[in-house]
Design a protein around this nucleic acid. Structure first.
Lengths: 348, 348
DNA sequence: CGAAACAGTGAAAAGGTTTGCAGAATGTAC
DNA sequence: GTACATTCTGCAAACCTTTTCACTGTTTCG
């Protein structure tokens, strides 16, 4: 059926060793033979049997990618990056969707680990202990999570949060809320921590935490009412979906962004530009993240150079669109001895 | 390093053949031995080396999935379905993103074909000739395209279009436009054909075709102006993204859906419920489609039963939301004997 | 000119599994 | 008790490739 190295050898009149070398280690074989063999192989449409090769080399030429939810555009982008870079490096990509379930995750990692050279775990939902267990069993790279000295790729969540805050403060907002995401989310912890740090550094601002909310549209609906009740003039949402839900809830309540409340998100998913008002958000270059994770994994696996090297956070970028604007004047109307001005409010 | 069948055999005090059989063909081995071997294997954490197995059986235990763009939520869903069903059947999934490029597609299919038992080609962009070539080389299933007697899974595009039309007509619309998608899209051809058939069957309606437009938000912007100019009171868009863009353009022009023009889409991507107004659209059960394609591929590959069987179109469902409504009165106000009218414009 | 290095090639082993075949053990029928 | 069927198990081949080692013939250097 399929053409094997033996067929090529026979056709080219050389031994199979020579064919193997002509294709895999061209410098070890004489110019003439090499050319002849290579042409014969190409003419016959020979492709090495990966199973046989893997059997002897111990390497499979493929990597695994585990994501919580393929339908989530965030992970779709990461996949795209991973897949592109892996293919460029001659690796194939096994994909596994865990449906956000840690149990499935464990099972999937275990079964995948045996048939790949390494695994990229994206936004893994398992406990620290489990993740360390995975790492002990096979080469892994963590995406969107940091744990011990397991190689990982992360975004600069803190930097992103600070840019949004600076943006909102510059627009005159003094009471700003953070609508938190799931407690189990590492990204959320990072953002919350940065938010608190920011609050600590800016005692003149009035910063409130809301939530936690599920990271979907529905979470934004919940967050909307709380945000209105809080009296904040601006809300930073855990992600874009929450921001969209929040804005929708404002609309339902007869308010609007950014007129009444400014709303910003995280991720810059495609939806950000489809809704009205377009979302001010922190862009996370996800495709780049996918690429970086492959590079890191390949470095670790192949140990070409710095295994275990530390990769800096991927920088993120604030994208200002229409969902944020100057603080509304009404927020300044408040009783008595502290008159009508925003500048005054915040004490500046 | 890894525990092999040999280790298990030694530990269990049997031959490797027995171990192999105890795990793969349990009925061929005595109850007692089988239990003993299975327990030993499990205790030692034995997992068969897939490369070795593949080498001898000629099967890899994995399938390939080729999609044009992983960032597109439509394909993300299909992936999810494919991946879930494949894993349930003990298959792993190789994924490949072609970036909408037929050249990449050909290369990817060729390199993937050698390391999997079969390939699922989703919304393939290659020419008929190329696709037939793929099919000749390896077992494939086409998703979202029909070609000769290559096994394929498709949605009932025609049925979907007819439901939307019926819906709009029931709402009193008489001049309805179809904003067409890319000419290269098989789905678009189907929908266009159904639209024309509908026009033929309903001579009393005034049906106009607009486009073709790129299947994105930007295409909807273009479509918006043309739709307004056409005088149609309702527009059926090639997909949801176009519908969203179209609605946005209406808003920019000071009009709104459904008040001035009703807008419907296709696909029911998650965005449909995130925008305002929520989109009336035809739901395509994509995850189910992914599952069905795996089943079909496995049936074909393993030839368990009906290879080459014909799979009926997957039924689709109209989901009525807020972007469609009763035809505006202005459309009905018309001077008597058939003056200024749209019906007239297009000449039926 | 001889020895040594070297380049190019082939033979053969190894890698882990499945499976056809044969042998051993047990049970059955006469 | 013998012949025979049946059930279970082990041996060994086969799958295709990479890679070590050895061999041949050529070049280089002293």
């Amino acid at each position: 059926m399929a053409v094997t190295i033996r067929d090529v050898a026979k056709a080219a009149g050389v031994s199979i060793s020579t064919v193997s070398r002509a294709l895999a280690a061209p410098e070890q074989v004489a110019e003439a033979t090499r050319v002849h063999v290579q042409e014969t192989a190409r003419a016959m449409g020979y492709r090495p049997n990966r199973a046989a090769r893997g059997l002897i080399t111990g390497r499979t030429g493929s990597i695994g990618l585990v994501v919580p939810d393929l339908e989530n555009p965030f992970f779709g982008s990461v996949c795209k990056g991973v897949q592109a870079r892996a293919r460029a490096a001659g690796y194939a990509v096994f994909i596994a969707d865990t449906d956000e379930d840690p149990m499935v995750e464990a099972e999937v990692v275990r079964s995948l680990a045996k048939q790949v050279d390494g695994v990229i775990l994206c936004s893994v939902r398992s406990t620290d202990a489990d993740v360390e267990h995975f790492a002990a069993e096979s080469p892994i790279v963590l995406v969107n999570r940091k744990l011990g000295d397991i190689p990982s790729i992360t975004f600069d969540n803190g930097g992103g949060l600070r840019s949004v805050m600076a943006h909102l403060v510059a627009l005159g907002h003094r009471k700003i809320a953070y609508a938190a995401g799931p407690v189990t989310s590492w990204s959320n912890s990072e953002r919350t921590a940065a938010f608190r740090a920011f609050a600590f550094e800016s005692p003149d601002l009035d910063l409130v935490e809301l939530g936690n909310f599920p990271p979907f549209f529905s979470g934004g609906i919940q967050a909307g009412d709380l945000a209105i009740a809080s009296g904040a003039t601006a809300v930073v949402s855990f992600n874009d979906l929450v921001a969209v839900g929040l804005i929708d809830r404002l609309r339902q309540r007869g308010l609007s962004a950014p007129h009444d409340i400014s709303v910003a998100g995280f991720d810059n998913v495609p939806v950000s530009t489809l809704v009205w008002p377009n979302l001010t958000t922190v862009d996370f270059p996800r495709v780049q993240m996918g690429r970086a994770s492959v590079d890191l994994l390949l470095d670790t696996v192949l140990e070409r150079a710095g295994a275990g090297r530390v990769v800096p956070d991927i920088p993120v970028e604030l994208i200002v669109r229409q969902s944020t604007g100057v603080a509304p004047v009404r927020a300044i109307e408040r009783p008595d001895d502290r008159p009508i001005l925003q500048t005054q409010l915040s004490g500046t």
